[in-house]
Each structure stands twice: as C-alpha cells, then as structure tokens.
Design a protein around this nucleic acid. Structure first.
Lengths: 209, 209
DNA sequence: CACAAAATCCCCTTTTCAGGGGATTTTTAA
DNA sequence: TTAAAAATCCCCTGAAAAGGGGATTTTGTG
C-alpha cells in the first residue's frame, strides 16, 4: 500500500467548525486538508481547477442545501467521496444525502476518532454512518418510511398549516372545495394520522413543510 | 487597567466546536481557556470548586437545555457572565436566554473577531448580541412577542398536537371536555391563530412544544 | 387577607373536519 | 399507446372545532 495522504476539502460556513477541523485533522498523518469553502458556490469554483479525495460537507449551507450540492458534485466528479456533516440527525436528511451520492454521514458531535475513521473508510470507497445517523436511518426505515407526497398534496398541506380552511384553499387554488377535501383525506390516510393537528405536527417533524 | 486574562469556560458537547474554540482562542492574549464541559452536569460540577469569568454556553446540551442551565448558574454564581452559543438563530431562544441571565448571544457561524469582541464585551458586564441574533430578537419583539402560556395550556397544547380530541384530552387529564375547550379557545386567542392547524404550526415554530 | 390569575365548568349556534362511499378527467412514465 | 398515478369532483352522515356568551372555584403572591 502506498502512502499518499488523503486530500480533504471542507465545506462549512462555520468558522468554528473550520478551525476545529484544521486543528483536529491538520497534524494527522495521512490526511491533508487541501482547501476550505464557506459556500456551495466557492466549493464548485474550487473543483473547476482542483481536486480532492474526500469532501466534508455541511448540509446546511448559506447558498444551497447540501443535498443538491452533493448531487451536483457527484455528477461532475464521481471520483470524489462525500462525507455529509450535520448538526442534525434526522433520518430523512441522512437518507436523502445517501440517495444523492454521499458515502457517509457524521454528526457534528462526533469525536476525533470517529471523524478519522469516517474519512478513511469513505476514502476507500466504503460507506460510513455514525452510530446516531445509522440509528436514525434505521428508525426512519423501520417504523415509518414516509410515503411519497404529491406536488398538489404538499401545496395543500402548506396551506392547511397556514390555517386556511378547505373553502379558502379551494379559492386560492381555483378548484372545488371537494377536491381540496379529497387531497386532505389522502394526506391523513397516507401519513397515517387522524386529524389536522397531528397532520401538521407530522409534517413539521419530517420536514414536509 | 490591569491585565488579568479573561478566564473562559466552554460548555459544548461538540468536540469540533471545542477544538475550534481551543485553536481560535487558545493563543489569544488576554484570554485563557480555563476548562471545558460536554454536559450541563459536568459544568455544574466544575463550578463547585472552580470559577471563571465568562462561560460560552451551547444552548443544546445533551442532558439539560441551556436556558435552564443558564438560570441555575446565574442564581448560584451571579458574577459569571454567560455568552450563549447556538447554531440556531431563533428569536424565541435569544429572548429566553437573555431573560434567564445571559449577557449575550452569538451564533456559531460567527467569525473569530466577532467571538473575541463578544467575550470582551460580556466580560466587562456589557451585553453583546451578534447581528443575526439582534435581528431575530428585534423581529420577535416587533411582530409578535409570544404571550405567556400557562402550565395547563401547554399541557393541552402538546396533547392537541399529538392528535387528541377535546374529549380524549379531557379523559386523560380527568377534567371536563368543556374545560379543555376553554383552554383551547384561550390558546387560539392568546396566540392569535384561527384554528388547530395554525395553532400547531405556531407552537412548533416557536418551540412551545 | 385580598386580589388577580389560572383553572374549572356550562350554555348556545354555525362551520369545518373526518369517514365512508364512488366517479371522471388529466398527467406521467413505461 | 396504454396503463397507472394524480388530480379533479360529488354524495352522505356524524363528530369535532370555532365563536359567542357567562360563571364558579382554586391557586398563588403581594
């Protein structure tokens, strides 16, 4: 085995996290931090003329969400491995990142060892899920994989959460109140909730709105 | 003016943030990091036999929320200044921390200068709000200061969000459905929302539940 | 103690929602 | 092109919520 250091690029808009990475990984043998970006745009800019082995990518960026950035990077440069980094630990996020080409997911309260292990695994083309992320993903797969919601249903869901009644929504969307009612019933059935209150809570808990 | 370094104690369960702090503040003249804690409990333990000038406190700790920890520290050791630190930037959080004795609020995407300025200001007994936090607070004060909700109302609010109906809640709390209905109406009136859907959304948006 | 705030309870009417059923027309993707 | 999925629409009934009113009993704090 040869010993080229793994080139790591960090995309995160938190100076604290960047500092932390620098001091956590900077002196680590086998790892070389080859650049930083605070925004998705500057990250994309960097890769026009440069490369890296692994990108540590925050999911919450100021100018673009990590899920889309992940997809774009993987499309243009499939050889670069992406390790998602997030404060949150929500099953839906984890799943979406993995579906869009991420090789792993590490929560930001990971310690140094976990971070190093994740980087090494991912750089070899393997998958790494931090314990919490794995749990969240399993939970979201076991108990309730969220059924797909259609465009129209989502649109109506948003208006319901804003407090509009069926007739009001109907007026806004130029359809009959019966139609809105049908969609509403479908939502209740699909998401397996029994009334408006639990519908809104479920939707907010799962980032549907 | 004499030049004793400001003793800073960091309470944050993210190793990354701790590392970041260490490398950001470690070599800074006039600042001395006198300790770290990952949990509220170990923080409280530290201050039994030690002290500090400023605590940088994450609002989201594993064992206790920052708002309560803040209150406890300020009660026991009013001389210690608390600078709240959070990923989020929600007006309600900012307001609550300040009400519970925090001297300032800095979002985690603050840069080094902002952090240093905040620590210095706060250590002098002044108040520091990072720009975003100030905005959030102003917004939450302008548009809608959230009316106080009573214990009972909150209890019922939670059950409403879980999807229980008035009779069901009444059964659970051993009161009459009329009573539940009254509380429900009070909630709608207090929070100025028109129905269950917007009530739940408002409650979740403002961390009432 | 006394006063205010909170919590409890009841009446009424109208509107909206939930649950059940069924049906037709557009879209979308294979 | 053709089947499946989505979106549209309607009927019915009973339950729940919203909007209005008022009243009494606890609780908590100065």
């Amino acid at each position: 085995m040869y010993n080229a250091a793994i080139r790591v690029f960090v995309v995160d808009d938190h100076p604290l996290v960047q500092e932390g990475m620098r001091s956590l990984l900077g002196n680590e043998k086998g790892i070389e931090i080859c650049g930083y970006a605070m925004t998705a745009q500057s990250c994309l800019g960097f890769f026009v003329h440069n490369s890296a082995d692994v990108i540590l990518m925050d999911i919450n960026l100021p100018d673009m969400n990590g899920i889309d950035l992940c997809k774009e990077i993987k499309t243009k440069y499939p050889g670069i491995m992406i390790l998602a980094l997030s404060t949150f630990n929500q099953g839906s996020y984890v799943t979406k990142m993995m579906e869009n080409g991420a090789s792993g997911y590490v929560v930001k309260n990971a310690d140094k060892n976990e971070l190093l292990e994740a980087i090494h695994e991912v750089s070899k083309g393997k998958t790494y899920l931090s314990f919490e992320a794995g749990q969240a993903m399993r939970k979201s797969n076991e108990s309730a994989q969220i059924p797909a919601i259609t465009r129209r249903e989502k649109e109506i869901l948003v208006l319901i959460a804003e407090g509009l009644t069926n007739p009001e929504i109907a007026g806004k969307l130029f359809v009959s109140p019966s139609t809105v009612d049908s969609h509403r019933k479908n939502l209740l059935a699909k998401l397996n909730v029994k009334n408006t209150a639990s519908l809104v809570k479920f939707a907010m808990d799962h980032q549907l709105i």
